[in-house]
Design a binder for these strands. Structure first.
Length: 500
DNA sequence: AATCAGGTTGGAAAC
DNA sequence: AGTTTCCAACCTGAT
């Protein structure tokens, strides 16, 4: 029997309908040629070994919402279980695929799969369309503008993109014709339940940030309606330890592609237009540009997520200490502020950017002297807004391995949180065993006299751990180590490029 | 070649 | 109380 050829749109980090040019290209191709449209998402069941339950929940919710939105267009989402590199090539024949669309991504794991799929598609004469739609700018052309060098400062990056005209977003509104809809393709909802990935949903805390395009757009519009708030936004003045987030929490939606970064860009321009407003790097637009900055660096740097083999990354002789790494990851370092942050991260999947600074500095150059790569892996599991290039870039920044070099600026686990939360309400929420501690001791409970510890129903060393390191002492030793590592790095560089 | 300004968000002490 | 200075001194990009 002669089969009707197909067009496939491969969804990856673009879990949305709006501003999805690659999807629109697929729809148009299907309509024009009377082919079948097959939107797919490939879910590797192995994902559960790397990605935490919270982020998986966000992903599943996003897929469910995407399916709902596709059905409104007379289509649906088809979820393949397995590896794209194994499944898609088979389906190219079975479905008679002639046209394949997807977005440009940068995460090496996605690229590894893409490379294989692309090779097979080329052999089968399938036309491939890839669209830059995860970032505001085309990072490749930004690099080209800088003579194929990675801009190493934010200001330099801004100067490169300053006069680039950002294209308009595109919309998909017309429903698909019936003849483009494969019969039996959409008969059942095939978005997996969390239990399919081995997750017991009842073990999760209440869902604070539900995934999906619908939720993401709602959040975007809610914040964009607060014009004064947007125009006065200054990141360093927002609080890392407020009980409710002091920033937008749009990041999970942008990292999954539920909300288009380009849409965010245009909405911000609209709000700022004609009103006095803050500027990058501290403004909301500045936050979006930080993302572009790290994407550009990630695109132009081999082994960007590693220390060894990464040209940008200062080589630092980190030590490994599994016990301390675990204590950090599980929020039992004995420093209440650090532990509160790590527990919020684990429970809710989102922490404020400055909170990330605090715990990243603590793990690496500040206190534990453990490699930023270890911290990045922990964040990868927990963060709803995990993003390959931002995660690696920010970890290098905080560990003073790249982009940032003033290593003598160390965050104090005792002093830093007090600036925005004197009473320690944040600690009391996320480290409830210390709830009854007097404010005087909430950031340093080990200083509380025994009778105070008893009265607060929590003995340090029993109900809550002793400090695993002495910050005052160790951060100075680590500064010395940083100085030595920098000197060694400098010598290596001058050896490689001797003066002519 | 050498110098200089500037860098999203430190802390503690000194005014 | 809010700003300034010290700490010990980094790197990039521009000139």
């Amino acid at each position: 029997m002669a089969k009707i050829p197909s067009v496939v749109h491969w969804f990856r980090l673009d879990l949305r309908i709006h501003d999805n040019l690659a999807l629109r290209n697929a729809i148009n191709e299907a309509e024009n040629r009377k082919y079948l449209l097959r939107p797919v998402y490939v879910l590797d069941p192995d994902i559960a070994s790397k990605v935490g339950a919270n982020r998986l929940r966000f992903l599943i919710q996003s897929l469910q919402d995407l399916d709902t939105n596709l059905r409104k267009l007379n289509s649906c989402l088809f979820i393949l279980r397995g590896k794209a590199s194994e499944l898609l090539p088979k389906l190219f024949d079975e479905w008679q695929v002639k046209y394949l669309t997807t977005q440009v991504d940068i995460d090496p794991e996605i690229l590894k799969e893409e490379e294989i799929v692309e090779k097979v598609a080329n052999e089968k004469d399938i036309f491939i369309v890839k669209r830059v739609q995860h970032t505001v700018f085309d990072t490749q052309s930004v690099l080209k503008k800088n003579n194929d060098c990675v801009p190493l400062t934010y200001q330099k990056f801004l100067s490169l993109v300053q006069e680039i005209q950002v294209k308009d977003t595109i919309e998909i509104t017309k429903s698909l014709s019936d003849h483009c809809k494969p019969s039996d393709y959409c008969d059942n909802n095939n978005v997996p339940l969390l239990s399919e990935l081995g997750i017991d949903e009842s073990m999760l805390t209440a869902c604070k940030y539900p995934g999906g395009e619908t939720e993401g757009l709602k959040r975007l519009h809610m914040y964009m309606a607060k014009k004064q708030w947007v125009c006065k936004f200054e990141k360093p003045n927002s609080s890392p330890n407020s009980i409710e987030p002091s920033t937008t929490v749009l990041s999970p939606y942008i990292s999954h592609g539920c909300v288009s970064s380009k849409l965010f860009y245009h909405k911000l321009k609209e709000v700022e237009n004609g009103i006095p407003h803050t500027m990058p790097p501290v403004s909301l637009m500045g936050q979006l540009m930080w993302r572009e900055f790290y994407y550009t660096a990630g695109t132009g740097t081999e082994n960007f997520d590693k220390m060894v083999g990464n040209k940008l990354c200062t080589q630092i002789p980190w030590a490994s200490n599994d016990e301390q790494l675990k204590a950090w990851a599980e929020g039992r370092t004995g420093y209440p502020f650090v532990d509160a942050i790590m527990r919020q991260l684990k429970e809710e999947g989102w922490i404020h950017h400055l909170a990330r600074h605090m715990v990243a500095c603590f793990l690496t150059r500040g206190d534990l002297w453990i490699s930023w790569e270890e911290g990045a892996k922990v964040f990868e599991g927990y963060l709803l807004d995990y993003d390959w290039s931002l995660n690696a870039g920010n970890w290098m920044w905080l560990s003073a391995s790249a982009f940032f070099y003033k290593y003598f600026r160390v965050y104090s686990p005792v002093a830093f949180g007090k600036k925005t939360d004197k009473e320690g309400l944040y600690i009391r929420k996320y480290v409830p065993e210390l709830k009854k501690y007097p404010t005087e001791y909430i950031y340093e409970p080990w200083k509380a006299p025994q009778n105070v510890q008893k009265a607060a129903d929590c003995i340090i060393g029993e109900g809550y751990p002793q400090r695993i390191v002495d910050h005052d002492k160790i951060h100075k030793e680590n500064m010395q180590k940083m100085s030595v590592a920098y000197k060694a790095n400098k010598e290596k560089k001058s050896l490689k490029r001797p003066r002519s």
